[in-house]
Design a protein around this nucleic acid. Sequence first.
DNA 1: ATGAAAGCGCTAACAT
DNA 2: ATGTTAGCGCTTTCAT
Lengths: 382, 382
Amino acid sequence: MTTSAAGPPTVETIAARAGVSIASVSRVLNGHGARPNTVRRVEQAAAELGYVPNGVARSLKGGRTRQLTFAMPDVGNPVYVSMVRQIQATAKPLGYRLLLHSTDAVAEDELDVVRSLADRTSDGLILVPIRVTGEHLDVMAAAARPVVVIGSLPDEAPVDSVRADSVSGTLLAMRHLLASGRRRTAFINGPADTVPGRNRSLGYRTALAEAGLEHDPALTVTTEFDISAGAAAMHRLLDAAPGIDSVFCANDQLALGAVHAAHDRGLRIPEDLAVAGMDNSELARASHPALTSVDLGSAERGRIAAEMLLSRLDGEDHDVRCETVAARLVVRGSTAYDQPDYDHDRDRASDPRAHPDPDPGRRRGAGSGTTATSASASVSAS
Amino acid sequence: MTTSAAGPPTVETIAARAGVSIASVSRVLNGHGARPNTVRRVEQAAAELGYVPNGVARSLKGGRTRQLTFAMPDVGNPVYVSMVRQIQATAKPLGYRLLLHSTDAVAEDELDVVRSLADRTSDGLILVPIRVTGEHLDVMAAAARPVVVIGSLPDEAPVDSVRADSVSGTLLAMRHLLASGRRRTAFINGPADTVPGRNRSLGYRTALAEAGLEHDPALTVTTEFDISAGAAAMHRLLDAAPGIDSVFCANDQLALGAVHAAHDRGLRIPEDLAVAGMDNSELARASHPALTSVDLGSAERGRIAAEMLLSRLDGEDHDVRCETVAARLVVRGSTAYDQPDYDHDRDRASDPRAHPDPDPGRRRGAGSGTTATSASASVSAS
DNA sequence: ATGAAAGCGCTAACAT
DNA sequence: ATGTTAGCGCTTTCAT
């Protein structure tokens, strides 16, 4: 004797009510064709009972969950936030849900996420590792589901990836500073023992060499990625190395710190000190004067990673792919006199409605004055 | 005849290899006790085959997925980001994964999220609605899984909720401005047709009344929530209503816009114009001078919502709960002469490691100078 | 076009 | 202590 109203309706409940078999219910509900009369009765029964198919049972049968995992070091970082946004925007229309995982920059946690793909709970993974070890490569190669990495991988790695071009990005910013007549450009870098850290350093030195300037080690500081570290670093630079007329910072937080330090000393920006940052986060637009910043395309990297993953899930068995997203310089008032103090451009870097910039030249909005320059510096990213 | 290496190992594979039944495998793997010898053989077989239990099958059997859903209007908003962070931090140790859903502030999408709980894919939902309609209440009451709302609900609503106290928050900021001798305080509000919008308006007028100041409608502007809107509003106010010596803004973006406008006119902050914002986002610390801002406890709201939901999932069948998180004023240089230009306090509002402030008085860091005042304004939030 | 039945991988009740 | 078996809810052969 079957209980009547026990639990939510299932195919069986619907079948009973419609007077058909569960197979017919399934067929009708999945549009596999049936006699009009059958269709009608099943649909009516389902509607009356407010039937919603059990997704877990479906997943067990189908072997797919329609869930994607995005794992990155820190949910709070605006760079990852814009990735989340694009991944979500790309995956949602195809019926995928997004599982978020913050690794807190713990390598072991990253490995666990990859390993846990074996639990069949997620159809694929987009991973932003802090540092890629040999173990990462091993574990990813053995992953139970497709993995796409946002970051730089060794060439032989059998894993799809999307990388930023921080060498070119740095070059763009440096060329911009040097082209405006600056001759003594300091460099506040983040931790140097990472791929991006080394790349920015390379870009910095390359730009100096291009301009025929000698590299003065006293002009470079390596520090943590936050505002107060940026301020401290800038103070240190101004104390130790006189004559600094500009500074390039490895992210916008550092740049804002530099701005604070400069203001504290009564320096005018950009007259006395030009400041450029990196990431083109909301902070860049919020600053006063608005901050010139290198956009490394985090939104686009997110979108491309999602597309790569989805194409794998579509069963496409193409070769390992590796794309590099071009850097783009967004010039604002912190480096250029003729730029506005703040930026009316509401097209946020992380805006889901923002299309990948079709025209990397002059940006929308007459009189906005924000200038963007696309990167194609002839230095290979690695 | 069973295929040998078809697909990933299952209980059956392990059982065969260990020479036991699948039931024993399950028992050993779930620590339900078995003979030492059996345990050893099962564990060895599982280890050798790199066995990972199929989470979907488990979920089907157990009726629980150990997944939580967080649905909010916009992944990019720092307020929601800090909620995500805390929810994640609270849920992860208990073995829950986090499903992120951005509703893009579309009410129908919010309803769909609640309805889709019926697909059994998620064990519970934390929802941040833009506006709560009668339909929201109906749908939530009929939800297949526990729902916790972050936001204000009618008193009778049979749904757990956590709300901010924007009335008290506004009062705190206003009292602070008025206590420092300001007498003509403008108010830049966000959209007024929302609960928080009305509450801030109430707080503003209440504070004026307390101070015996008359409410001048010309000092209030209602606009969108972004920097350029804030700048435009401030310009408008300064044009239309002379003598303004301070301004309270409904969020930090608006406040930054006001700062820009003031700078453009050569006004000094805080000497000529004191500016206070709301949300205590990273922008507040990034601004120069750093922005005094009301912290509405988004991180704590996230944490509490997660705890409420988890306790429901633990099967606790208590009454409907509704908590209100106290507002806290963080005083910085934009309103107070003796505050530093920027803030060395690295304890970000959205920091996962940040404990709920145990001491709402003077904050850590000698010489940091950032002052926080807890809210307990005697005006009921609604 | 439809129904009966198998089976996805797991856990737990029941039997030994 | 261990094995057998049912069943979670669904989709999909395979018969009819």
